[in-house]
Design a protein around this nucleic acid. Structure first.
Lengths: 116, 116
DNA sequence: TATTTAAATGAATAAGTATTCATATGACTG
DNA sequence: CAGTCATATGAATACTTATTCATTTAAATA
């Protein structure tokens, strides 16, 4: 075992090498996991589900999620940094919009999957 | 502002209440995020992508990912606990199989999304 | 203008987690 | 039967991250 593969019952070093070479590079892997990570937090998922229904201000999101304004703002910032939401300042309010249809498709599939 | 919603320009308390009532309950939200969390880690994502090509033993996965056997085993356990992979003991080896087609569909979409 | 409101943000804290290291188990092998 | 190999696992460590608290900013209002 010089290459890390098993000795036992393994005429498959070729297959292993092929799978390794076909593996997406670290950058792409990181991009993918980064997107999934964004929708892996209950607060952020709920924000996206709410905004899917209707653009909303921070205050309304805070009421819908029953969470502090600060916590919601912090998570909105995460979603903004990933370009999943955008906002428009309206007076002293900030109205947030969904800005990524792909993510909603992913979430819908996740909902179906989890609901069996 | 007694209900947490904004005073300003907000005749939408009804909409807010509706969105709140239509929000999936905590249990379902948790199920969904739990699945996404599983594929939000680069190591686990790579394991699933590799097993999608072909069932593999821990040792081969370790070689493909260029990671320690221990790290791979720990992550396989996480995926096993979520019923995303299963394994069959073959002598001293353990051959791991994908055990969740839905997850692969999600990952495929994630790949497409990330690759633009 | 002083005050209140909506939102953003930095720092601190707490909770979660991925990897490593050391060790254990069970199967094959010499 | 002693030793090696494949794998699993517990503990420790290092890192990430979600929330809270306190504060700040900018806009509306009294």
């Amino acid at each position: 075992m010089t290459d890390g593969t098993c000795d036992v019952e393994n005429p498959d070093e070729k297959a292993v090498a092929e799978i390794k070479s076909e593996m997406p590079d670290h950058e792409l892997i990181f991009k993918i996991t980064d997107n999934f990570k964004a929708i892996s937090d209950p607060t952020r998922l709920k924000i996206l589900l709410a905004l899917y229904k209707k653009p909303l201000c921070v205050c309304d999101l805070s009421a819908i999620l029953e969470m502090s304004q600060s916590a919601v703002s912090h998570q909105l910032r995460v979603l903004r940094d990933k370009n999943m939401v955008r906002f428009k300042k309206e007076g002293k309010m900030a109205r947030y919009y969904l800005d990524d249809e792909h993510v909603i498709t992913l979430i819908k599939m996740g909902v179906e999957h989890a609901a069996e």
